[in-house]
């Protein structure tokens, strides 16, 4: 085990759920800083973020249960923020002209536009994002599923890229955990085939219209879906 790992403090409890999803700012980082690192040269505060009050840094871990204080001074907007927001608005507007009620939410995640799509429209919106005249996000870079037991839904995320410029957006949709079902994206992106099989295998989302929906990582007779948060390998 490396030195870093030995030094790390036990994880803080509490802080359940996902507190605050506006990740564009990263002021929450500095709270874990401990100035007294022994051997490693990486001591002290971390320059990328604003060093906050030095006092709470020496607190033992047990006292740091509460989520970090959100009283950082408002910093000047990042230069990457404005074009990202413009892109987000443009994409949302484009989608809304075709499917007025498809977009449930839109936000920026680390300067990446994120669209939350209503699941009935999932395939259609992906198709639009791929083929739309002013959209052309034709490269599916990554697909992932995330389980949120508290919210009772599973989120499926598709990262799409506009090819020569390498601008990326994120489209995601939600499906209830107990009857997880989504229209498959394979007719739009053939490359989604195995990604969806993996999500089906590990998270148990059924993709309707998938040409070959079988388990891909786990054995065919496996019970349960390992990446679900409440999965237990024991009966």
């Amino acid at each position: 085990m490396s030195e870093d790992q030995k030094e790390t403090l036990p994880p803080s409890s509490g802080d359940g759920g996902r507190s605050g999803r506006d990740a564009a700012s990263s002021e929450a980082v500095a709270e874990g800083v401990d100035a007294k690192r022994t051997a490693s040269p990486s001591a002290g505060g971390e320059p990328g973020t604003k060093p906050q009050e030095a006092a709470p840094k020496r607190e033992p871990a047990a006292k740091r249960e509460a989520p970090p204080k959100k009283d950082a001074p408002p910093k000047e907007p990042d230069p990457r923020e404005a074009p990202a927001r413009a892109l987000l608005e443009e994409v949302v507007a484009e989608v809304k002209t075709v499917f007025p009620d498809a977009v449930e939410g839109a936000e920026l995640q680390k300067f990446r536009p994120v669209l939350l799509i209503r699941r009935e429209y999932w395939r259609d919106v992906l198709h639009l994002l791929k083929t739309g005249e002013r959209l052309r996000f034709r490269y599916l870079e990554c697909m992932a599923g995330v389980d949120y037991p508290q919210g009772g839904y599973i989120e499926v995320v598709a990262l799409l890229t506009r090819m020569p410029e390498a601008t990326m957006i994120e489209a995601k949709t939600r499906t209830p955990r107990d009857a997880a079902e989504l229209p498959s994206a394979v007719p739009v992106f053939p490359g989604a085939n195995w990604e969806e099989r993996e999500i089906f295998d590990l998270l148990g989302v059924h993709f309707e219209g998938h040409p070959d929906l079988r388990r891909i990582m786990m054995p065919d007779d496996w019970r349960g879906h390992p990446l679900r948060k409440d999965y237990s390998p024991f009966e």
Partner: peptide, 17 residues
């Protein structure tokens, strides 16, 4: 060769790629 990093790494809540 090692920057100044917090001892416990806690990326702010959010999604990253």
């Amino acid at each position: 060769v090692m920057g100044k990093v917090p001892k416990i790494l806690r990326p702010p809540a959010g999604e990253y790629y």
